[in-house]
Design a protein around this nucleic acid. Sequence first.
DNA 1: AAAAAAATTAAACAAACGTTTAATTTAAAC
DNA 2: GTTTAAATTAAACGTTTGTTTAATTTTTTT
Lengths: 205, 205
Amino acid sequence: MTEYNPKQIEIISITEKLFAEKGFDGTSIREIAKAADINVAMVSYYFGSKEKLLDAIILYRLSSFRLMLENLQAENITAKEKVSKFVAIYIKRIYENRDIYQILHYEIVNQNRTSNFPAFSEIKKNNLKLLEEIIQEGQKEGVFKQNCKSVLIPPIAIGAFFQIYNNKKFYQELIGLQDEISFENYILNEFTNDISNVILGMLIQ
Amino acid sequence: MTEYNPKQIEIISITEKLFAEKGFDGTSIREIAKAADINVAMVSYYFGSKEKLLDAIILYRLSSFRLMLENLQAENITAKEKVSKFVAIYIKRIYENRDIYQILHYEIVNQNRTSNFPAFSEIKKNNLKLLEEIIQEGQKEGVFKQNCKSVLIPPIAIGAFFQIYNNKKFYQELIGLQDEISFENYILNEFTNDISNVILGMLIQ
DNA sequence: AAAAAAATTAAACAAACGTTTAATTTAAAC
DNA sequence: GTTTAAATTAAACGTTTGTTTAATTTTTTT
């Protein structure tokens, strides 16, 4: 795997934000160069092309995605608590990596690019597998229903989060969250708790 | 309000699909012209510019969005049944208008365009108002909790739908839905029912 | 049938795009 | 301190972009 030097990582980070905000097609190399305070030729020099820069962003961010949830299974808590923890860790990770999620989401919808996202599918599958193990545990404990819709859990969590995040102004006004910090607090506490309860309500008999 | 002739409506419909698939920036006027079998100059001739064509698409689709849910409140059924019906109508409408939802979603995230979406916010607010009336009804009936998170209902429904729709291939494989028809059936029946239950689980004491 | 209006066309426009070049500066190696 | 490699630059490349022009065809009106 390719290692990136500090200059490359800086370009990756700045471009990640721009792509998430304005989209791949909506962001020009000249904009990137200006934001990162580099010459336009540097993108090609370091990454080969704009599209390969996108690949680099995805590769760079996704590489740190593995593990994190692995330890959860081993913990000595009830299945119900594990689901709550899963949701909390999941939403936190999405929130913290919202830029790359936004980019990936759009690039998956938008078939213009030929980037391959099998790595992303793999992560999703692993998450689901872990989740199903936890649910089976809860079924054995007799607290979860037998026909649980585990597949719906990630889309509910991710989907609801991005619906609110992408309509931030609308919901900030609605819920009454003035600044960025109170919004972040809402997401990581109240929202996380609510979604956790919604999902548990679906699982518990 | 401007009326559109059949030729304009054809351009609107074809462009709507292209914008939803490839994004505003990812779709060129020449692509639109080719798909709609018209000369490139016709877009400017009929709509003024590419950006005004986007406005026309939004205006044209959103104008048919009002009502639909209005009658629900008057029906002689329980609040619980009303919520189920609300969710079903809501998901159906999103599914049938998924292209314009996709465009709006992206354009709201993407601040490149100066299109104003107060009409869309208005629709969302009206939906929420109706929903809260139904919930209050259910609270009076004594079936719904006192502190209900009604704000979360639309984002859960829309969010979960688009998470699945935008990762269609992934979920088709996962759930086992070979063709387009069985996917549509899944969304309008099983998925709608599951989401309805999830939301009711959140409301019922 | 003649005149007026609307629709359609091919061609051209300048601007912006991603990318490459070749020259220059900076840093590392010896 | 000289040589070699890496980083950075301004300029130019050929395309593609959205839009406009001016000429032509089609349709409508009288």
